[in-house]
């Protein structure tokens, strides 16, 4: 039986500053969950603790009953900047990950796997080019391929579309959605784009403003799939959810902070 990813009473302090306090959620397998909140509230902090790049001060992350505090190949990570190594071609960047995740495969097998994922994200033709020669959107696609080639159980995305123009952003959102529908990996997406969260996720976890950020509102996105961006504005359910998110971000996220201060 596959168990959910559990984040329990996660607390992270930076010196005297308590960034995140008692943050708890359970993410069932295959769920697409978004983490939404004001800038600086601690979304990236939570995600990077799940990725194992930082350690929790208290509490922590449990996968399959085991507490994780280091990075693992079961978690593919995509950052806001593509973070490709500029001295390697697109293929070699993905190969670096393939060699780690599939050490038993022959080099030819690893290469085939890389080409498969580069194809899946739609950038086969750029396999032998250096990142600097490619657009931001293409670079980010390669970064996604690098995460996918690990064939991870979890995909952790930290504002992966944040640096892209809106057309490219739409394209990449559709790509991520398409990939998710194909293999239903658990996805955790950090974003501060409300429409992006509503379009993509099963569930939106809204964080209160830091310091001491925690779960403010845990919202199920009940919209049926496939969703259509162009008619979203006419969908009353969509507008209701959107209203709820905005209400929270405008009023309640701060109220929580005020309550605590009082």
């Amino acid at each position: 039986m596959i168990r959910p990813l559990e984040i329990t009473s996660l607390t992270k302090t930076f010196g005297p500053h308590v960034a995140v306090k008692d943050f708890s959620i359970k993410v069932p397998p295959g769920e697409f969950v978004s983490l939404l909140g004001h800038s600086g509230c601690g979304k990236s902090t939570v995600l990077s603790i799940v990725a194992g790049l930082q350690q929790a001060t208290f509490g922590g992350v449990v996968i399959d009953g085991v507490e994780v505090d280091t990075p693992g190949l079961d978690r593919g990570v995509v950052f806001q900047s593509p973070s490709l190594l500029p001295w390697m071609t697109a293929l070699d960047n993905v190969m670096l990950a393939a060699c780690q995740a599939h050490p038993k495969q022959t080099p030819a097998g690893q290469k085939d796997l890389c080409l498969k994922y580069l194809g899946l994200v739609g950038v086969s033709e750029f396999a032998h080019q250096l990142p600097a020669e490619l657009s931001q959107g293409t670079q980010q696609r390669i970064a996604i391929a690098r995460a996918l080639v690990l064939e991870p159980r979890f995909l952790l995305l930290d504002e992966p579309f944040g640096m892209l123009d809106s057309m490219t952003r739409f394209e990449l959102q559709d790509l991520v959605l398409e990939l998710w529908e194909k293999d239903r990996r658990t996805v955790m997406l950090v974003t501060h784009d409300i429409d992006e969260a509503l379009y993509l996720s099963d569930r939106i976890v809204l964080m209160t403003d830091g310091p001491e950020a925690r779960v403010g509102l845990d919202l199920a996105v009940t919209l049926p799939r496939p969703r259509d961006r162009s008619v979203a504005n006419e969908n009353p359910e969509y507008m209701r959810l959107r209203g709820e998110v905005i209400r929270f971000l405008e009023h309640h996220s701060k109220q929580f902070a005020n309550e605590r201060a009082a």
Binding site: L53, S81, W87, L96, Q100
Partner: peptide, 25 residues
Amino acid sequence: QDYHNVAKVLRLSPWRRLTKIWIPA
């Protein structure tokens, strides 16, 4: 830091970290 993060999430061995990231960078 981005490159260090990549090395960490891919769990590169110290040797690969040196040859694939540190030296070229």
